[in-house]
Amino acid sequence: MWKCSALALVLVWAGAAALTAQSPKYGVGRPATPEEIRDLGAAIAPDGGGLPEGSGSVAEGRAVFAARCARCHGPKGEGAVGATLVGGQGTLGTPRPLKTVGSFWPYATTVWDYINRAMPFDEPGLLKPPEVYAVVAYILNLNSIIGDEGVMDARSLPKVKMPNRDGFVADPRPDVGNAK
């Protein structure tokens, strides 16, 4: 009898534990709303996940860039108070590497993501998705990564292979410091 009761107790306890593991323990907060997730879920994956509808051409991007980007990055992305966006391919293994979107950034999706989230510097969020696609197309074109007739959208952008895509390696540290 004693054994049966103990066993029953253990079974009840085990069942409760399993339920607890699958439901919130503290129950704070409320379910996130679709609007919150949409507003905060703007991060773009390297496979293109999260990219919105719309498209933009190199030609359209040239106009947007001149109006919104050139003031800091120079008319051709050569850099000013803002970063240099163009050039540098072939310099990464030299004593004077020039790290630009064209020479260094491994994913074109990152260019879209960063412009969308953080640019223009003093007015982030200003550009609509088609304008972001267009500016990305223009910057890729300035770096000779896509042609003059290029158009970027949710399908074409993740397919762009950046020149430095294969230039990244895992962290091997500690690589120095385990011997005097």
Partner: peptide, 30 residues
């Protein structure tokens, strides 16, 4: 998957003499 954000690819990554770049170098050493 990692999202390859600007501040973990273009920045906060470690360019080596051979032109390769170490990524996700999170650890701060002694």
């Amino acid at each position: 998957q990692a999202y390859m954000a600007r501040d973990e690819t273009a920045k906060y990554s470690d360019l080596m003499p051979d032109g390769k770049t170490r990524i996700f170098t999170y650890q701060m050493e002694a």
